[in-house]
Nucleic acid binder design. Structure first.
Lengths: 196, 196
DNA sequence: AAAATTTTAGATTGTTTGTTTTAAAATGAA
DNA sequence: TTCATTTTAAAACAAACAATCTAAAATTTT
């Protein structure tokens, strides 16, 4: 009964997540959201709720789709686990659309000084997703003889997470792209204690 | 002629920089600035200009005072350069006031997607200040025989900068403090290729 | 086709925002 | 003291904002 939504929810959430990623929560206006999605505020409020709720949904969507997808593509599905890992890091420096918007998780972690608990929790989820994937990848690398098994794959994974976040800060500011590109391979080899 | 300012400019700028560091640019209201400084908007506008100008001044002040001071205290004046370097990193995890506000440069780099050119430039200045200090410290460490001289102190310094920024992201979100505290020493030893 | 229900677009609301203005108080120079 | 100038505090302003409401259009179900 009643008509159906004329837009695809998933596609819309991609657009919403992207505009929040570009501008951050505070700087994004409802008008921005209208322009980005092609919908009017009425539709947005009807389907999702206010700006705040929409942001929560976008973060969750980002974790369960964008992040998971990146992990799957670059890490889990990679033939050579070490190459896949490096490719993931290099991909941060060359965003598809040529922009330098970084990562929604990173940007949000910095913007919201863990003021809102449930956001911090969702960020933790996303970071843990990455960290766990790094850990799996480290173990795979060791199994394939690419590296010697590190004493604590867990801590090594956290190191990679820190490195990952650090890159995203500089990328976001548009700074030191060339140097970072140069450093990525070495740093990963170093952290993983690559056999040379 | 005319009366003098009743407040200390430097003290005020410290407070301004701190509130911007805590809340970010967009989320900070003029009312916040009034509360933080104890001045009214009239006084602020008279002495400094609007919110935007005040932010520019705060960033510049932060570079030339807070950042330089930290570099001087932890790095240049350190007896043992390696210990000083590690202390600097550990200090990120234990802010004086018990908060977790991170670094104004990091927070701003992430909030302003290099939309405003002169801000990005000022950020670059601050990052370069850190990077250069890291480089000096690396060379001092090598001279003192703490480490073997790395092939490129410049790139090694950039690595440390990335690591530094990465920590600040997680600190800001209030995440993984214990693990990071554990990792800092190892990572610095690793990056610097410490003699063991 | 008719009825029921939902989406949609645009106008509107009340609030918050950054900024300016005003007048009084304070202070330095003549 | 007197005058000139600045700071100060509080009110006032206009713009931007998130959010809601309204009526019309659309589309599914009966």
């Amino acid at each position: 009964m009643g008509r159906n939504l004329s837009f695809n929810e998933k596609e819309t959430l991609v657009k919403v997540a992207n505009i929040f990623r570009e501008k951050g929560y505070e700087a994004t206006t409802v008008k921005d959201l209208e322009k980005a999605t092609g919908l009017t505020s009425g539709s947005l409020y009807n389907s999702f709720g206010g700006k705040e709720v929409l942001f929560d949904i976008a973060i969750s969507f980002y974790n369960n789709n964008i992040v998971r997808n990146r992990i799957s593509t670059f890490l889990d599905q990679a033939e050579d686990p070490l190459v896949g890992l490096k490719d993931l890091f290099h991909s941060l420096l060359n965003e598809p659309d040529g922009r330098e918007n970084g990562c929604l998780l990173t940007n949000t972690a910095v913007e919201f000084n863990n003021r809102r608990r449930h956001i911090t929790q969702e960020l933790d989820t996303g970071f843990s997703l990455l960290e766990a994937a790094f850990k799996r990848q480290i173990i795979r690398c060791a199994e394939k003889g690419k590296i010697s098994k590190p004493p604590s794959p867990q801590l090594t994974a956290t190191r990679l997470l820190i490195f990952y976040q650090g890159i995203l800060v500089l990328v976001r500011a548009g700074l030191r792209r060339k140097e970072i590109d140069q450093i990525v391979n070495d740093e990963i080899d170093l952290i993983l204690g690559r056999l040379s």
